[in-house]
């Protein structure tokens, strides 16, 4: 694990942020199974250290775009739990008033350009946001989270080329979680993803995506590089998707695509469990501190569910075209 001289308070904040994502998503897994939510959900469980490590470096003026597995990035960047929950429930009080749903949670007031249903869809958008950051010269950076599957989209090559050429303040974070939807990464991906930065002369790093401190430090280096005017960084964070590509996949998949031993191995390296142990062992937190945080988050999640359930469904009021054009 990476060394740090973080304060106890900072450590607890990272813990809280990761645990919030975990608890929200465990609730969504349950909701999906019980048929409480209308659409599909793609859960981020096991990858929390990446979103939290990176977003802890960012403020509202920095931009992020993410993926279909985007609840974690939304929450880590400061999106509100109840607004996320109401959106996934398809309610009018959701962050996008029920127009987007799970795959499209966005809050521009917090610099969250949004999750995205197109694999790799955020890559070009973030490159453009990075251009805006550079031109506005306001000290902001643009960060795109994408998966190992998206790394095989041609747009990554185009984006690395132009952002390096123009020295844009962009951070490309590839979360290699082992799967392109239902295909193990090594069956669809040649070479190492991080090496794709090299021919462009783009700075690049790999990081243990289950170590929130290591991610935090790696993102800090990338951010400083971007703000110095030295251009983008490609980070490959190695992590693991503990859940399926999509909840409920067991109901339609005829065949297993991974063995349970593999899952167990990675669960033993769970980023939240590891971090808990680390801060308790180092004397930076007591078990009771963590229990207080856990309790508070459980209350927050329950309140968010209640808020979502009590909220009305959207009504276009006869104006279906609302929001299509300004």
């Amino acid at each position: 694990m990476a060394d740090t001289n973080f304060s106890n308070e900072q450590m607890l904040k990272l813990y809280e942020s990761m645990l919030r994502i975990r608890k929200v998503e465990e609730q969504l897994a349950k909701d999906s199974k019980e048929g409480n939510i209308p659409g599909a959900v793609h859960l981020y469980i096991g990858q929390e250290a990446v979103a939290v490590g990176v977003c802890s470096q960012l403020s509202d003026k920095d931009w992020i775009a993410s993926t279909h597995r985007g609840h974690g990035h939304f929450l880590a960047k400061g999106g509100e739990t109840r607004l996320l929950m109401a959106e996934v429930y398809g309610r009018d009080t959701g962050i996008c008033r029920g127009r987007g749903g799970s795959m499209h949670v966005a809050d521009f007031s917090k610099g969250i350009i949004g999750a995205n249903g197109i694999v790799g869809g955020g890559i070009s958008i973030t490159t453009g946001a990075g251009l805006a950051s550079k031109l506005a010269n306001d000290g902001s950076v643009a960060v795109v989270f994408f998966g190992d599957g998206a790394a095989n989209q041609g747009v990554l090559a185009e984006a690395l080329n132009i952002s390096t050429l123009w020295q844009l303040p962009v951070i490309f974070i590839c979360e290699n979680n082992g799967f392109s939807e239902f295909s193990p990464t090594n069956t669809v991906t040649a070479g190492n993803i991080v090496d794709r930065a090299k021919p462009y002369g783009t700075a690049c790093e790999t990081v243990d995506g289950n170590d929130v401190i290591a991610v935090w430090q790696c993102a800090e280096r990338a951010k400083l590089r971007a703000l110095r005017g030295d251009g983008p960084t490609l980070i490959e964070a190695h992590t693991y998707r503990q859940r399926g590509h999509v909840e409920a996949e067991a109901t339609f998949l005829s065949k297993k695509y991974r063995d349970s031993q593999e899952i167990e191995n990675w669960v033993s390296k769970d980023p939240i469990t590891l971090f808990e142990k680390r801060i308790v062992d180092a004397g930076q937190a007591k078990i009771e501190d963590l229990q207080i945080i856990t309790k508070a988050i459980e209350v927050e999640v329950n309140e968010a569910i209640e808020f979502a359930e009590k909220s009305p469904y959207p009504d276009s009021g006869g104006n279906e075209q609302q929001y299509m054009f300004t």
């Binding site: 973030t126 453009g128 990075g130 506005a136 747009v155």
Partner: peptide, 22 residues
Amino acid sequence: RNTPISETVMSGMAVGAAAAGF
């Protein structure tokens, strides 16, 4: 500004730069 011949990234960059205020 001239771009590389990269229509896929260009059309999306327009979205990102516009979303960010340009």
